[in-house]
Nucleic acid binder design. Sequence first.
DNA 1: GCCGTTTTCGGCCCGACTGTTTTCAGTCG
Length: 592
Amino acid sequence: MAVDEPSRYTSSEDAARAVKEMLHELVRLTTLEEESPQSFKVRAYEKAGLAIESTTDDIRPLSASALAKLDGIGKSTAAKIRQFLDSGTVDKLDELREKYPREFAELAKIPGVGPKTLKAMRDKLGVQNLDDLRRALDEEEVRTLPRMGAASEAKIKQAIERLGLGGKDNRTPVADVMGIAERLVDRLSGHPNVADVTYCGSLRRMAETIGDVDITVASEQPEEVMSEVRKLPEVDELLLSGSTKTSFLTTTGLQVDVRVVEPDQFGAATLYFTGSKAHNIALRQRSIDRSLLLNEYGLFEVDDDGQQTLMAAKTEDEIYQALDMAVVPPPMREGTGEVQAAADGTLPDIIQREHIQGDLHYHTDRSGDGRSSLEEMVTSASNQGYRYLAITDHGEDLAINGSSQAEMEEHRQRIQELQPQFPKMRILFGCELNIGPDGGLDYEPDFRRQFEYTVASVHSHFDLSKEDQTQRLLNAIEDPTVNSIGHLTGRYIGRRPGIEIDYDEVIAALVANDVALEVNGALQRLDAASNVVRRAVEKGVKLVINTDSHHTSELGRMEYGVRTAQRGWAPRELVVNSWTEKKFMKWVQARR
DNA sequence: GCCGTTTTCGGCCCGACTGTTTTCAGTCG
């Protein structure tokens, strides 16, 4: 690409996302080519994808040799990435696409059908697409392949039926999964044979979308637990069930995998099933370097005769310690440098739920969409042990849900009257200001200044240009009555994309104006997203983790917000609502 | 395809379940 030619990607995120998609396609097609997902080439491309994900540099201007310096990317993949950035194509990928057309490669999404089976189907039965496969199944040809029989045919048929709901790649927004996962854990934890139970997998890592629910159970009677699991009301279709593992589909098509281990192995099992795959591989590699064996049953010393001696298994913490490294919180286990950092002792002092001293985005029925009274909301916050709380009902610009100046003044009166009943918790008269299309805010500046704390957020005009969206946020951030920016993009995960903004500009403005970036714990939002949090943290942006509660039942969202912040490597010192009341108030008032 | 405190070759994480086999290959996580 000539130096003066504009990049085909409008931002570094665009470029990184496109490269990741390109590498993912390379993974899928190379799996077919090599006939194995364990192929070293496949794993190399997977690793390269993680390397792109973990770098915060703009990869667009990097030369092939600079790209090859990234950990996990070598000369060959670097050249492919460079060619892709320059021309939008990769020779190798074009060759593979020729060999494995989309409609054939799609067949690999069918659960139970792997690359070897696919190759046999194509070579021996001439299967090129889904229609061919249906025909081969109807004519009972698939059973003529090696290691295939009538049962395999039935399984594949059933899997194809389900494809409409979801193949292997289908992922569900975390908001649609957390409830059922927590309910399953509740049901099982009440069982007398269950010593302990937790959900693991991407849900525990607080990913935005979830492939399936992994539940790990500690029990001395695995058979009885499996029997219990098969009887759960959530089970719609049983996929497989052995002595220690059962998989089923719920009525919504969500897959749930339940594994039972000995109580003494619970830590090793939860570590293993929480993943991520990349994190596990890095931990195992570290084990091997120390002549140890790590699996879902524990960390073992292996002597020359192959005799295994248990070193740690009961808790995740003791396994990390035995590996001579810091404990990595689940949301950080993504294989993006955390294992190295934990080993080097450079893992930051990550924010934890128990550090949180207050909630600073909190509605009452003063807001049109609020459903609990001021008294109920304040009482429930006090029960959390909070030391301070900001009541932030909507400003007047939000036509249906907002409050006029007169209504706000009355609201302030009620808050002041309530305060003496809560001597241990400071209640701040606040507001959720609406950021208009041009960055304008509710009320006159003089009245806005009377709020003790504000969160300013976007609620409408989601389709403006990236430049306009960035500018409206900059205008709001620069306003001296704004303390924080709420749900940065306004997205609903899996349903509505957020506004497009220039993150570098917004992050720079947050730093310059000492305005905090909210991590909103509502599961449909989780906004700012963890990758944005990580970029903001690198620049020293202050954070505030909130529940955006509209009802007393929503206070538990704080946990999800904290986990999202952890996923963004947020250190405690940057989270303003982990500070003492004195320090926090000093920061708030410095803005006024 | 990547990598290096056994460094330019020779390794590369580990195990459950299924269906087909008579001891294991394929798939999945």
